[in-house]
Design a protein around this nucleic acid. Sequence first.
DNA 1: TTGCTTTTGAGATTCATTCTCAATAAATAC
DNA 2: GTATTTATTGAGAATGAATCTCAAAAGCAA
Lengths: 142, 142
Amino acid sequence: MKKEKALYREFLKSKNLKLTKPRLIILEAVFKNNEHFNVDDLYEQIKRNHQNVSRATIYRTIPLLVESGLISQSLRCESKDIYEHTYGHENHLHFICSNCGKIIESGFNEVEGLIEQLANKENFKIQEYNLGARGLCKNCRE
Amino acid sequence: MKKEKALYREFLKSKNLKLTKPRLIILEAVFKNNEHFNVDDLYEQIKRNHQNVSRATIYRTIPLLVESGLISQSLRCESKDIYEHTYGHENHLHFICSNCGKIIESGFNEVEGLIEQLANKENFKIQEYNLGARGLCKNCRE
DNA sequence: TTGCTTTTGAGATTCATTCTCAATAAATAC
DNA sequence: GTATTTATTGAGAATGAATCTCAAAAGCAA
């Protein structure tokens, strides 16, 4: 959380943006959450903590967090955008259970190299991976 | 297009649904389109062809096409759901240019095996892949 | 045909996200 | 410190894709 904050501050400064109180509250909520969250999760968490930030500000702040590399958009669930921590987390792929909605994370290393090769073939510079598959999890297979 | 239609008819019958005129018009529009399309694309294409189907019906029909395996949801672009042909198309992964929106398709075979292994490790049964990466295409790299 | 079920079109509704704009806060100049 | 300028915020309005409603139309069986 220390490093995240430093990085954020750095990023904002480089963009001539200010590390205001709402932006700080949002940062803290993001990293107090477990890895996957959506805007409502943040909003509720902040309220639960007796703080207050408007939804508008959350919506405005998320792109900053994404651009700074701290989080990234990962999936959609129930027609809401879902984000996840990026900083300090290995890339990974998602297996999403189409029955119960469970998200399973799985390794990535081996896959990454391959995909990079494919990208190179197309002269494409990857900024952000988006790898997953839908299907049935262990429990729902029966 | 022959096979697609047969498959569709088959599927509808198995669900006790009827192959009505609007449903047929939509099927034709879907497969006259090139691979990626959204609801508006279909709607416009149908109108251009001097036919008429309401947006509501398109929205209602797409899930049927997905369930039948003829198409699948692939990406979102400009906050619209995008679909793609599945039937008769190899699985592939998408490189999406975050600058110009271009979609590049790339091979898959080698990746598929790896990912399947990872899924097996989790006892997860894959139904549908969703593999891609955002970044900059050849033209936008400069 | 008649009666019954499914499907459709049109418009209303929902709901996540974005936008607007007046009020506030931060930063800088004086 | 105060005044001035600029960036940011909150509240609610607006947007727009997707879904829902319901009366009318189409399909189907007998």
